[in-house]
Design a protein around this nucleic acid. Structure first.
Lengths: 354, 354
DNA sequence: GCACAAAATGACAACGCTGTCATTATTTGC
DNA sequence: GCAAATAATGACAGCGTTGTCATTTTGTGC
């Protein structure tokens, strides 16, 4: 059975191909009766518009691009993150019968803007979705604006021009986590800052500060280390934090990979967790459930964010206004790596009553 | 600057568009001088053939599909695996200026064959790359043969019809790993079999048996458990293995996720690693370096395999014969989770002091 | 050199759709 | 109820390629 075309449908419905085209594209000025007849013919013939023909004839490409940091090099962000983003975007993209063009890249490359320009020029994508850390690169955004290509960013650091981005409430969630640690009895809570190029992760540090403040604790700079989102940088920061004279009793890392690094160092040092050290992360990677002890963290609903971003992008492509920025809730996930602090004095009573 | 078309190039080179088309597609019957002139014009105008137009006019779609098991559900195979596959395939696909269609799916779905049929019918892909476990589904393969769509499989279980697949030497590598464990002094080596639907992983069990045999050890069925490639099934199998009267001193899991599960159970049981229990996995996921202790495993060069698969697919699409199946080496990676066995005497001392 | 085969090139119609504009129904206003 | 306005529909030319087939050029054998 050969593939049905507009002509087949038109013949079956007794109208012209242009009318069928109008129905398919939801254009106005088609009588309800005609529309129904066409719809019926489409269904009967299982007609699907040919994307190549549409691309060739029309102004649209029925293509959206997804730009993300290539996770294959070891030191780069998690594959799970990218997979979830792809999954969320694919879902929406398919629903619109668009195609998805995946494009892993390297945000540090000096040619990144040229690369993106070339991508847009060659593929003629109708729109682009940017994942961090590309989402927050000003030069990328301005290049795209100049090209007139609609785009939506996932978790950019700042909320300006909000309606083209999807955020999580990282800051508030981190404040909550910090207060939770305080509620367990911790007074010296270490923090590992995320990669400086990744501002959304920077907001997590602000949340930590908020949490301290609202708990009546002061920020102690000796308890804060700069990490780089990697497992290894988590290890390094953990050593710096734990080997000082008055080490923290809890460490809150800006992401799970670094938290996993902290856990590893703690194991090496023979610290019991959470008895002697509580550890918290952010992201809720699969890893968080698989390491030992399982990691208290904050769940980032990545797939949903990606789906929301795609939704937003389609609205932009269709020229719809408003909708505004989308903020998705990131809930705390309490697991084994955090617990009541055991000080030199016995605080086990507390544990029992809690 | 508007995009250059065949016409522009033809005008500049002083030939017809058909001749330009011939040059672009490397067709025969073009004089060298003409070819050079056209090539020069192409370069000068930075001409790139329009994929949509090609798809529409020609028989080819300049599209290859990548089918893999959706890794988003928690219990499913690793995201890293998929990312590496995508990376390897993308590399080759771009080099051929083809497009890549990613298609996560669910191999257990009853409609999987229909889904793939629909995919082929709608997108008209020129070829397909199948990742496990879809790579070894007979009904998928036969449906594709029937449709006449070229395809290449990555790590299918068996080596029949080899020239359309890329393998690793899993069996030999697992035999090596087993012998390595024996060389450390282990005589009771547990094994966790992979998912029964994933035959390539089944070969690993055969390798384990080979290794035992060549070391003069007999297969003890009480030391073998059936796993399902997941972290959780690794935990479960580990408990069954370790809680029996005469537990193994080493456990070799068919993949890293399960090995991570074993590690976790060992921690819970207070077993020191590798002192009281050695653990080995297979895959060398990033996880393998991040858990504690780091995992001895076998590296599967997934990205290279995927690139090789794409290469093979293009050869098939072009109708080239031969080349045969590709086998990629999987090297052992020795880390902290395996070590010399501590004798019964030492073990007792330790237990007492602990 | 000449007839003929083979190689090189070109003309032109698809491919399946959208955009433009002309044409034909249907309302609307008064 | 009639002209003008508006809604509904259709005819047709591209979009940038490839495939087919006709035409021209070059090469070959004798």
């Amino acid at each position: 059975m050969a593939k049905a075309t507009l002509h087949d449908v038109a013949a079956k419905a007794g109208v012209s191909i242009k009318t069928v085209s109008r129905v398919v594209n939801n254009e106005p000025n088609v009588r309800q009766g005609t529309r129904d007849a066409v719809l019926k013919a489409i269904k009967a013939l299982d007609y699907r518009p040919d994307t190549s023909a549409r691309r060739l004839a029309g102004r649209r490409s029925y293509l959206v691009g997804l730009l993300y940091e290539d996770p294959s090099p070891y030191e780069n962000p998690s594959a799970n993150y990218v997979i979830d983003i792809q999954g969320g975007v694919l879902e929406r993209v398919r629903a619109e019968s668009y195609d998805l063009l995946i494009h892993p890249c390297n945000y540090q490359s000096t040619r990144i803007v040229r690369e993106i320009r070339a991508l847009v020029a060659q593929t003629r994508v109708d729109g682009l979705i940017l994942a961090p850390p590309l989402a927050e690169m000003a030069k990328v955004a301005s290049a795209l604006r100049e090209l007139g290509t609609p785009f939506v960013r996932i978790s950019p650091g700042q909320r300006t021009r909000g309606q083209e981005a999807v955020h999580t409430n990282d800051r508030a969630a981190c404040a909550d986590m910090t207060r939770y640690l305080v509620s367990l009895g911790h007074k010296r809570i270490g923090f590992i800052i995320g990669h400086p190029d990744h501002r959304a992760v920077g907001n997590r540090f602000l949340g930590y500060q908020d949490g301290l403040e609202s708990s009546g604790l002061k920020l102690d700079k000796s308890l804060v280390q700069q990490g780089f989102n990697t497992f290894e940088s988590g290890e390094k920061s953990a050593r710096l934090l734990l080997l000082q004279p008055n080490p923290p009793t809890a460490i809150f890392a800006s992401n799970d990979d670094m938290a996993a690094g902290v856990l590893r160092v703690a194991h090496e040092m023979g610290l019991s967790i959470p008895g002697e050290l509580s550890v918290a992360g952010f992201d809720d990677l699969p890893l968080a459930r698989q390491i030992w002890p399982s990691l208290t963290t904050i769940r980032q609903p990545i797939k949903e964010m990606a789906a929301a971003a795609a939704e937003l992008l389609f609205a932009k492509i269709k020229g719809e206004e408003g909708g505004g920025p989308i903020v998705v809730e990131a809930p705390l996930v309490l697991r084994e790596s955090t617990g009541a602090r055991i000080s030199l004095k016995d605080k086990r009573k507390r544990q029992h009553s809690a």
